[in-house]
């Protein structure tokens, strides 16, 4: 199976929030995959950092664009 890159578009969601979409994508992902999450919820930045700390996956990039926050995550810690 090859490693995949997947975009998770969670813009305009504040409840239950972008982390929910990430969880969903994480269930289907495998080690080596890259997930790119788009969000507009301002709380997303701190939530994603906390998620990374907890799950020990790799945060490749976290940046803010004009209309969205983008987080790029490499899945490395899935059991």
């Amino acid at each position: 199976m090859s490693e995949a890159k997947k975009v998770v578009d969670a813009r305009g969601l504040s409840c239950p929030g972008p982390i929910t979409n990430l969880t969903k994508a994480y269930r289907d992902a495998k080690n080596g995959d890259v997930l790119e999450i788009w969000a507009t919820d301002p709380g997303f930045k701190s939530d994603i950092k906390a998620w990374i700390e907890r799950t020990k996956n790799e945060l490749v990039e976290l940046r803010e664009e004009k209309d969205k926050i983008i987080a790029i995550i490499k899945i490395t810690a899935k059991k």
Partner: peptide, 12 residues
């Protein structure tokens, strides 16, 4: 829960 806090929406 899967969320960073008890209820996903911070305000609630």
């Amino acid at each position: 829960v899967p969320y960073p806090r008890a209820y996903p929406a911070e305000t609630f």
